[in-house]
Computed example of a mutant assay.
Amino acid sequence: MDWAKHTTVIAALVAAAGLGVTAAGTVVSVRVAEDQLSQSNVEDEERDRRQASRITFWSLPPRDDVTVIANRSLDPTHIEVSVGYGGALDGYDLWLGTVPPCTRVLLPNSQLEQGVPERRRKEYADSAFAEAIVMRDADSRTWTRKRTGELEPGRQTPGKLGAFTGEVEFDLTLLRKPDVKVEPLDGCESAG
């Protein structure tokens, strides 16, 4: 019996097994690192969305003639209202202004109707509605909240007015209109 050959074979098998264990450990380490990176990305996205997720809007029944915009965050936010009317291709953006923290804005749809072009006013003057809001958060990220409630990063509307680029005169700020009501929200400061 040649013990030297058997010892060499056994040593080779032990070395191969050691390499297999090392490879398996490496695969597990890579998966753990990928999971940690994925979790970190989810946490970063949640942190990025924190303020925007606390800003919502809806219409008040019975005739949906008032749009309510609520900023439940602890930071002010700059908001444009994307207005729809008539057909799916019609629309424009109006500069609402800087909405203070913990604030509700009651925006009559009569203010939204001011952007309907004169040539279409007779046909659509009473049908303007808030289709989305575009907001800029405290970290200067832009977000779009759609009428359906979806929140997406970036501008998801045509941006026909350009309020965030500084092309809007201050007098166009809807918050300055006498029939737009700005009210404090209760319980907002407890949102953490």
Rank of each mutant, 00 (worst) to 15 (best):
Y124V: 01
H78L: 14
E118F: 13
P100S: 10
R120M: 15
T77K: 01
T67D: 05
D65E: 15
L112G: 07
I69H: 01
G91H: 07
E123K: 13
P76Q: 08
R50M: 05
E123H: 08
P117R: 13
P100K: 11
Q114W: 06
V66K: 00
D44H: 12
T67P: 08
D44N: 13
E113V: 10
P108E: 00
Q114D: 11
Y85R: 03
G84V: 01
A88L: 12
A88V: 14
Y124P: 01
L94R: 09
W95M: 03
D65L: 14
T77H: 06
Q111S: 07
D75Y: 14
Q51H: 08
R104P: 07
T98Y: 03
R72G: 09
E80K: 00
D75K: 11
R50P: 00
A70C: 03
V68R: 06
Y92P: 00
Q51F: 02
V68P: 01
R72H: 15
T103P: 02
W95E: 06
E118G: 11
Q114F: 00
L74E: 03
Q111H: 13
V105Y: 06
T103M: 10
N109R: 10
R49S: 12
W95I: 07
T67M: 06
Q114S: 12
R121M: 09
V105A: 02
R54M: 15
R72V: 00
R72P: 00
D75T: 11
P100D: 08
S110K: 10
I55P: 00
P101K: 09
L112C: 04
Y92V: 06
R119S: 15
E113Q: 11
S59W: 04
L106Y: 06
R50A: 14
Q51E: 12
W95Q: 07
Y85S: 02
P76R: 12
D75H: 15
H78E: 11
Q111E: 15
K122A: 14
T98D: 13
A70T: 10
A88K: 10
S110E: 11
I69S: 05
V68N: 07
A88R: 12
G84Y: 03
P117F: 04
R119G: 09
L74G: 15
G115I: 05
L89C: 02
L60V: 13
G115M: 05
G86T: 07
Q111I: 03
L60N: 14
